[in-house]
Structures are given as C-alpha cells and as structure tokens.
Design a protein around this nucleic acid. Structure first.
Lengths: 110, 110
DNA sequence: AAAAGCTACCTTTTATTACAAGGTAGTGGG
DNA sequence: CCCACTACCTTGTAATAAAAGGTAGCTTTT
C-alpha cells in the first residue's frame, strides 16, 4: 500500500475528467464553438450544460490544449471557434490510451 | 436546452461513481472485506485507497445495496464481510447497462 | 501480563468536479 | 430605439476522491 504509479494516477484522472476527454474528442473531429460542442455531446448521449462546458474550455485554454479565434456570426454576437493545439492533440492521444485501459480494467472486473 | 431525461442523468451519475460500480462488481464476484476489495481493484489496475473505500462502503450500506457480517480472523481483529443485497444486485445490473451505454457514447465521439 | 506491533475500521480535511442559476454584452429585427 | 436572442462567463453549492490522521482489537514478544 505505497507507491502510486503513473498509469493508475492517469486512470484516476480519467475517472473524473471523462467529460474533458469527450470535449477534446468533439473538437478534434469538428472544430466549432460552444453550441457546436454541446450539440455533439448531446448527439452522443452525453449531457453537458453550459455551466459545465465554459469553465472546462477555459481550463483547457489556460493549459494550452486549446486555442480559439473569433468568428462573426450572421445572426448574433461573434463566436469563439476552438481548435486543438499541438499539445492538445498529444494530450488527446494519451487520453485515448488511458480510456481504453480504463475500459479494459472495468472488463476485468466482469 | 431543458429536460434532462433519466438515461442521461444516469450517465452523469456513472461518470462520477465509476468507482462505486467497480466496488459493487468486485463484491458480486468475490465477497470479502475491505482488503479483499482493494486487492481486486488493484488487480484490475484500478487504484483505490482505504480513505476512498470506507466512505463508499458505508454509503452503500446506508442505501441498502450492501450488507455485512462480522467474521473472525486468525490473525487480527474481526472483519466486516460484505455481500450484495437484492437491491444491490438490481442496482448493479442497472449500472452495467449504464456503463455499456457510456462506453458506446464515448465511441460515438471517435 | 505488559509492551510493541500489526491489522482493520473509520473520520476529518482539502481539492476538484459538475451542475444550477444568474449575469453581461453584442447583434439584428420590428 | 427597444426587445429578444445568442453567446460568453461567473458564482455558489453539492458530491466525490484522496490524503492524512485516529481508534481499537488481536497476536506476538519479552
């Protein structure tokens, strides 16, 4: 009952933060702004609300995983369009591995 | 952006509470006491520590999902051996479904 | 039979997460 | 020019997990 190896600690992070993984996935496949991301997650039956998404996006920006640029809209205020940075792409790749291994872990329990 | 259907809300519960699902799985397949459960989770590469497990077990007891009986040990204090109640078995079955659907959701995101 | 040490149980404190709710501001239509 | 809508963001609250610390029974050792 002592050392915490890095794999397990990443899985711990994955347990929480599943949503973050989902958000990064969505942005990878479909760059867009907040409403787009919410729609993608909803399509996948993952319910997320604005109050959850915005803090998450801003955290990822601070961490350098995402970048954005303003784009004008034909029907309303301008939008922040998000894209993965290089670091974001790398992190996402890691998270994919972690997710797979978490699924595997759960299947070991039957 | 209004109603939260019960499926999505269960998935929200699943995101958190993944650990709870794992613990119930472990008990289903191998009734035992705290150390047994920790060992099973570790075997599946899910790291959990005592300070996380005990509150969880006690919550499940309060919720009527688990029951326990004291058993003497040859080498130390008596142990609480846990088993699923009927309600626990039913809940676990539900959680299995929710887990599968969560995995499916994640796969939809690619 | 007293001390030391282990095993087992449990609680308290702290950080993080997700959500609900509320708030600001730019844009276009009437 | 005002209203409604869209889009962004913040604040406050509840739950979760982890770290750390604490109590007590049982065995072994002396």
């Amino acid at each position: 009952m002592k050392e915490i190896d890095s794999i397990s600690s990443k899985q711990a992070q994955m347990r929480k933060g599943l949503l973050g993984y989902a958000v990064l996935c969505s942005i990878k496949n479909d760059e867009g702004y907040a409403a787009t991301i919410l729609a993608n997650l909803k399509k996948a039956d993952l319910l997320v609300v604005e109050g959850t998404l915005y803090p998450l996006l801003n955290r990822f920006l601070r961490e350098g995983l995402l970048q954005y640029e303003w784009q004008e809209s034909k029907s309303g205020p301008p939008r922040k369009y998000y894209a993965l940075t290089e670091a974001g792409t790398a992190t996402l790749k890691e998270l994919e591995g972690t997710w797979k291994s978490l699924v595997k872990s759960m299947s070991k329990l039957n």
